[in-house]
Simulated assay, not measured.
Amino acid sequence: MLKTIIGSAERIATVVGKGVAWLTLLMMVLTCLIVVLRYGFGIGAIALQESVLYLHALVFMLGAAYTFKDDEHVRVDVLYRGFSARKKAWVNIIGGLFFLLPFCFYTAYLSTDYVAASWAVMETSQEPGGLPFVYLLKTLIPIMMALLIIQGIADILKNLGVVLNKHPMMEAL
C-alpha cells in the first residue's frame, strides 16, 4: 500500500517533469528566433518574447516536484552530507512536515483569490501584442503547490520507511 502511494506520486512528478523538460528546447529555439528577428530583420515580437517567459514558468513551476523527487533541489548540506541515512531521513521528515508542506499549503491558500481574480477578468498581457493568457500563467502557482504537496508527502513516507527500517522496500520503487 505504502509502496503504491509513493510510486504513484513519484510517477506523477516524473511524467510532468520529463514532459516540461522538453520545453527548454522550445525555449532555446524561440529565443534564437527572437534574436534573429530583432537584430537580423529589425522585427520585435512581444508575443514571442512573452511565450519564452511562459515556457520558463512552465518548466520551473511544473518541474519543481520532479527536481525535489530526484533530490536535485538546492540544499545547504554542510552538516547533512555527513549524516547517516537514518539522520538524513529524520531531517527530511521534519523539513517536510514543518517547512515544505506548511509553505505549500499556505502558498496555495494565498494564491486562490489571486488566481480567481485573474480568471474572473480573463487577465491578458499589459503589453500591446502580448499574450492573452496571464490567467493561465497565474494558475501555475496552485498547480505547483499541489505537485509539491503530493511529492512532499511521498518523500515523508519514503523517509519514514528508512526510519522504521523498511527502506529495502522503498529502494524497490
Rank of each mutant, 00 (worst) to 15 (best):
L110R: 12
G152Y: 00
L55Q: 04
K166G: 04
A45M: 06
I149A: 02
G161A: 08
G152S: 01
R86E: 15
V29A: 12
A116D: 06
L148Y: 01
Y54W: 09
N165F: 02
V20D: 09
V29F: 11
N159C: 05
Q151L: 00
V91D: 13
L101F: 06
Y114H: 07
A64I: 09
R75V: 12
V163H: 00
K166C: 04
A45S: 15
V74I: 15
L55R: 05
S84I: 08
G7T: 15
F133D: 11
S51T: 14
L140Q: 07
D155P: 01
F83S: 13
K158D: 12
I46K: 08
F133E: 08
G129E: 13
T139N: 11
W119M: 09
A172F: 00
F105K: 05
A120Y: 10
I93F: 10
G129K: 07
E72T: 04
I153H: 00
H73V: 07
F99S: 12
L173I: 14
R38A: 10
M170Q: 01
L140I: 05
K166S: 02
V36D: 02
L37S: 12
T124G: 15
V121L: 07
G152H: 00
A64T: 09
V121D: 04
V163Y: 02
S111A: 09
V134E: 09
G40E: 07
V59H: 04
Q151A: 00
I94R: 10
